[in-house]
Amino acid sequence: MSTHTVALFAGILLALSASTAPAQSDAPSLPAPPEGYDTRRDGIDRGKLETVEYDSTTVGLKRKAQVYTPPGFDRNRTYPVLYLLHGIGGDEHEWTRHGAPDVILDNLYADQQAVPMIVVLPNGRAAQDVTARDPIPKQSPAFAAFEQDLLTDLIPFIEKTYSVKADRESRALAGLSMGGGQSLNFGLNNLDTFAWVGGFSSAPNTRPPAKLLKDVDATKKLRLLYVACGDQDGLFRVTQGVHAMLDEQQVPHVYNVIVGGRHDFKVWKSDLYQFARRVFQGTP
């Protein structure tokens, strides 16, 4: 691994541990989610979470992912799919441990504010012997290798196992922190696979803005490109840089600055709420 890559990942921890002065919000925030949006309600239908295993030719073994199916899931109906990625310290359980994605989505469906979708929560490290406990320089190649695992192993497994729509208009990719960087890197690099992309508080693994857009015209055809971060986050400048580049290239996108937001699940749960309300809709 290059010293530049090591420095980028080391910078994640340094930025998060540093005390930073409040950054000026350079965009208005979207309206905050309503009170109780992430609290389990009584008297509503609920989706189902299950753990699956798939054969990974990329890694050479079986890998696990969690899958959420919406309330009233019907195998005779086809659904769009959101692939939702975790951060550098997590795995396939991070979102469900701390982010309540099933609760947020169940509540949105109860309020008829989201399109029913399947949500896949994978382990974003494509390696045999790498875990969240390993040093960041050891983890980083596994995060990069997940692009191949996602495209060649996980997506085909989901499309074979579940009744889903298998086209770019029906696939979304989003994630938090390290997973936000992966989502921008992989999503904008595979525009024939994903039409909806979201980066939540994206980490320094995000490609430099000048290298993130390979095809500006094709990127403009994304149905939704959502970039967001809290203005108190030590990594805010990563998202600012992406936004500035998208503005310069006139690429349509939703830029959401969460006033007072830090690098935590309070922000990321809000991002999931905002993204889920817009994804797979006719007009984002």
Results as ranks from 00 to 15, higher is better:
92 E>A: 05
71 P>T: 14
141 P>H: 00
278 R>M: 07
39 T>V: 14
241 G>M: 01
262 R>E: 12
44 I>D: 07
21 A>Q: 11
128 Q>P: 01
130 V>I: 15
110 A>F: 03
274 Q>M: 03
202 S>P: 15
131 T>P: 03
49 L>S: 09
25 S>I: 02
158 I>F: 03
274 Q>W: 08
249 Q>S: 04
277 R>I: 05
88 I>Y: 04
105 L>I: 13
283 T>R: 14
70 P>V: 07
61 L>V: 11
194 F>P: 04
44 I>A: 07
252 P>G: 14
24 Q>V: 13
184 L>S: 06
281 Q>M: 15
203 A>G: 01
182 Q>G: 04
43 G>C: 12
32 A>H: 12
10 A>H: 10
242 V>F: 06
228 A>I: 06
271 D>K: 07
167 D>M: 10
84 L>S: 07
41 R>V: 14
241 G>D: 08
109 Y>C: 12
119 V>Y: 09
224 L>Q: 02
191 L>K: 12
256 N>V: 11
195 A>E: 11
37 Y>K: 13
152 T>G: 10
174 A>V: 08
74 D>F: 01
112 Q>G: 14
126 A>R: 02
218 A>G: 00
108 L>N: 03
44 I>P: 12
228 A>L: 08
234 G>C: 00
220 K>T: 09
263 H>P: 06
69 T>S: 13
108 L>I: 03
257 V>E: 10
259 V>F: 04
109 Y>M: 15
81 V>Y: 00
76 N>H: 11
234 G>R: 02
261 G>I: 06
145 A>H: 07
212 L>T: 04
231 D>A: 07
24 Q>S: 13
160 K>G: 09
24 Q>N: 11
107 N>I: 05
229 C>I: 09
273 Y>N: 04
217 D>R: 07
175 G>R: 02
256 N>I: 04
9 F>D: 02
7 A>C: 14
185 N>I: 09
96 T>G: 01
238 V>M: 05
27 A>R: 06
264 D>S: 12
129 D>S: 15
217 D>I: 05
234 G>P: 02
87 G>Q: 03
266 K>Q: 13
166 A>S: 14
224 L>W: 00
280 F>Q: 07
152 T>P: 00
201 S>D: 13
122 P>V: 03
233 D>H: 10
267 V>L: 12
197 V>Q: 11
97 R>D: 15
189 N>F: 08
31 P>F: 06
68 Y>L: 10
212 L>A: 02
230 G>R: 10
179 G>S: 10
108 L>D: 04
233 D>G: 13
279 V>D: 02
92 E>V: 00
187 G>N: 14
217 D>S: 13
85 L>E: 05
227 V>Y: 02
29 S>A: 15
146 F>P: 00
237 R>E: 12
150 L>C: 04
27 A>Q: 08
3 T>F: 06
49 L>H: 11
102 D>Y: 00
177 S>K: 01
113 Q>V: 03
118 I>E: 01
87 G>I: 04
133 R>E: 10
157 F>T: 05
172 A>H: 04
101 P>S: 12
30 L>Q: 11
102 D>W: 01
61 L>F: 07
200 F>Y: 15
272 L>G: 02
